[in-house]
Nucleic acid binder design. Structure first.
Lengths: 207, 207
DNA sequence: CTATAATACGAGCGATTGCTCGTATTCTCC
DNA sequence: GGAGAATACGAGCAATCGCTCGTATTATAG
């Protein structure tokens, strides 16, 4: 047998304590990203925050980038769960009701962990995970496109792809900007007004 | 006389060759940001690319951040010039024509230097110049708000601030996404179609 | 209990970073 | 031409970074 004396290291954990370590690392990374920013998130700092040694960190994540990617994936999954559920729920509804619900969900989704979302939105590109985020966008776009296809008879326009692009981009931008750059606390009233306006914007465009 | 024997260093240049150096630095920074990314833009690398020594760099810019800020300011000025001119030109026009022109200008503005714009949009937050960008957004928002105010009689809505927020955010997002994440080359036809759709979206909302 | 695998540890290496400072060159003005 | 100011230079320092690897500890299996 040639070689394999050591190393096969960076892989999945089998014991329970290992899983605890892995979790602590991801959580510590998210915490540091939010509280101290991307630049401060060094591997040494993350390991310290997680109460773990650097060595252990590198047993499970081959690079700092992988760790950040894990945080991103986790956050994306959380959001996609909400969004996917919303599309399922909305499938049988007419356009005006569906859009209203989707707008509300978009805002909710952005409120899941706004500060983390902001850091990720800002820093994701440089981690090389840009593809993931574009995939995320495309997925939303695809679901919306499918919804429009199914409700084509309600619409007056020909180019459904264009319609989906315009709608998704606008809704996403409004939710994003309102939650991240708007007033610190979005009161119930403001949210309601925003949902009204965004719905009017998109429904008026589609019908 | 107590002290001021040396140093007062990081400041404006008086001689011509100094101005050349300063320009070379800013241009080199922009070039590296575009071609190699933010991480590769070290002070040593920038100085090298500019054909200048690190020492000279630090005579004019107190930090790497200041240098990036200079690039950002330059780019912002370029865009604001176009946008401001557009608002002036559009002031007397009715809403539908005005919006169409503004949408077209938004796309044009994003096409000024798309790759630099992308890098800056991605990296700006971490440079601490976030405030500048928000100010930029606010300026556009303010101009649009003023336009709506002046054409209030054409509109049917009460909350002009909300209307401006929704309009500006949508237009900006559509232009941004289309130029930066869309097909590599936006053909004339695609641009025209996009302008049509975005105009319809916003005009339908405002009127 | 013992052997082995899995996990955890952390000092520290090599590379790179932002930046300083003593020195050399060039310009300006008399 | 010469003195002093402005500009340019670049070796190199202190700090930090991502990451490795030899060792210590803990769990699992026979």
């Amino acid at each position: 047998m040639a070689r394999k004396p050591l190393t096969k290291p960076r892989k999945t954990a089998t014991q329970e304590r290992a899983r605890v370590t892995v979790d602590a690392l991801v959580e510590a990374t998210a915490r540091i990203l939010v509280k101290e920013g991307f630049d401060k998130a060094s591997t040494n700092r993350i390991a310290e925050e997680a109460g773990v040694s650097v060595g252990s960190l590198y047993q499970y994540y081959p690079s700092k980038e992988a760790l950040v990617a894990a945080v991103i994936d986790r956050h994306n999954d959380e959001i996609m769960k909400v969004v996917t559920a919303a599309f399922a729920e909305v499938a049988p509804l007419p356009v005006d009701q569906a859009v209203r619900r989707l707008v509300a969900v978009a805002i909710e989704a952005h409120q899941i962990d706004p500060r983390l979302h902001r850091v990720l939105a800002e820093q994701i590109p440089r981690t090389g995970r840009l593809a993931d985020v574009e995939a995320f966008g495309r997925q939303t776009y695809a679901m919306f496109s499918a919804y429009l296809e199914a409700h084509r008879d309600e619409l007056r326009m020909a180019d459904l792809n264009m319609a989906a692009f315009v709608s998704v981009t606008s809704i996403e931008a409004l939710a994003h900007t309102a939650v991240l750059n708007g007033p610190q606390k979005l009161g119930r009233d403001t949210v309601r007004e925003l949902v009204d306006e965004a719905t009017r914007l998109v429904v008026g465009y589609l019908l």
